[in-house]
């Protein structure tokens, strides 16, 4: 069973690598942000699999923290980072 979990974890890691293409290409900032969101979820899955495969229960806590904080960056992106070009493009 550990081999299978490790294999799936490796497969998920490769998924992340392929997904990087979307971050590089964009084209819009929201595209990139949601890809990062997917990476967070994939990271949670990888950590859970590793915790089981390597018998390191502490990694479950890492997955828990990752799951808890996964949304913080997205929220910051939506509320603080991305501008509405139609509204503040012509200020002053």
């Amino acid at each position: 069973m550990p081999e299978l979990y490790l294999g799936v974890a490796t497969f998920l890691l490769l998924n992340i690598m392929v997904g990087l293409i979307r971050i590089l290409r964009g084209p819009t900032p929201p595209d990139r942000m949601l890809t990062a969101q997917l990476f967070g979820t994939t990271g949670v899955a990888i950590l859970l699999l590793l915790a089981s495969a390597l018998s390191l229960p502490a990694l479950t806590d890492v997955a828990l923290v990752l799951a808890l904080l996964g949304a913080v960056a997205t929220v910051a992106f939506v509320l603080r980072a991305w501008h509405k070009p139609d509204l503040d493009g012509e200020e002053e």
Binding site: G40, L69, V72, R80, A81
Partner: peptide, 13 residues
């Protein structure tokens, strides 16, 4: 993965 990203995004904004 969590807080630094948010800080940087805030800065870019």
């Amino acid at each position: 993965a969590g807080l630094t990203g948010a800080l940087f995004l805030n800065t870019v904004g």
